[in-house]
Simulated assay, not measured.
Amino acid sequence: MDKVIDIEDRIPSLKEKRRRRTNRNFLFLLVLFLLLLAVLLYFQSPLSKVREIRVEGAGLQSEEEYIRASGIRSGDALWGFSAGEVEQSVTGLEGVEQAEVIRKDFRDVVIRVDEFETVAIIQRDSGFQPVLADGSVFAQLSGAPPSAPILAEFDEAGQLRKMVKELEKLPVSITSLISELKYSGDGSITAFMTDGYEVRGVISGFAEKMEYYPSIVAQLTEEGKGVIDLEAGVFFTSYEKIYGDGEKQSDDEEGETAEGEPDEQEINIP
């Protein structure tokens, strides 16, 4: 036979459950109130304000220019701006490939900038203009030339872009040996190397052939300095055979050669 529990015996347990439920609701409301109060105090305190703005990766533009473009100032609300909108504004600057905005150390903002690589430079009367990996010429002049080949007489924008694409394909070990690239029309170029050689070729396929430059030069250790012709095959002619005195011509004398056709040495490449 089932035991019958009197309602009076149930009342204490019902009261205890109701009391515990009431306490839980009160505790929840208290925690919620304290959280809201903490959030309110946080946004009213200096802890929610931007303390410092740092720029990483600046080279073409100054750090001040990137900060100006971001629109963020010290003392602004740390959560009062959209990181995506700031990134879009910074990316709109000349020479910027992409940007990232990070809130860091609770109060600081870091703007990380990824600029297009400088693959060459153009020398002007008042300074140097970087030629970027996207084929554009950076508008601002710099007083000191970056470590990149100088492009001369590339007045045709299309040929300039083609040359930039070729340079991008080359490893730094090769581009660092190129002092200057001079355009002579019809896609032909002359590369003046830091090790004293002169390389003549065409823009199309220049990178593919120049990858063999170290092995080509290694075969010329006893030949002296001269011209390496990459236009059709690989041929070498010493300056002595071209100019008669073993020295390179000056720009005013370019095109004048000694009597007779210079002897050429064919070079084998791997």
Rank of each mutant, 00 (worst) to 15 (best):
I102H: 11
I150V: 14
V96Y: 02
F116E: 04
D155P: 06
P146D: 14
K165D: 14
L181P: 00
V164Y: 02
F128G: 00
E166D: 10
P130Y: 00
L181A: 05
K104E: 09
L160M: 12
T91F: 02
S184A: 14
E94H: 09
E94L: 11
P146Q: 14
E168G: 08
A133V: 05
I174T: 11
K104W: 11
Q98L: 12
R124T: 06
K162L: 11
T175P: 05
G95P: 02
E166A: 03
T91N: 05
F128Q: 02
L177N: 05
S142W: 08
L170W: 00
E100K: 12
A157R: 15
V101T: 10
S179K: 15
A157K: 15
V137F: 02
V113E: 02
E115K: 11
P146L: 13
Q123G: 08
T175W: 04
A144H: 13
D134Q: 10
I150S: 08
Q129A: 06
S126C: 04
D105Q: 13
D105H: 13
S136I: 09
E115T: 06
F154P: 00
Q98F: 14
E153T: 07
R112T: 05
E153V: 06
L167T: 01
K182G: 08
Q129L: 01
Q123V: 04
P130W: 00
R103E: 11
E168Y: 07
F154R: 00
P130E: 01
E117R: 14
D114Y: 05
P149A: 07
A133R: 05
K169E: 12
V109I: 14
I122P: 04
R161I: 10
I111F: 07
D186W: 08
S136Q: 10
Q140Y: 07
L167G: 00
V110R: 12
V113Y: 02
F116D: 03
L167W: 01
P149G: 08
T118N: 04
Q140M: 12
I174M: 06
R124K: 11
R112N: 10
P171N: 10
K182D: 06
R112W: 03
Q140W: 10
G158P: 07
L177M: 07
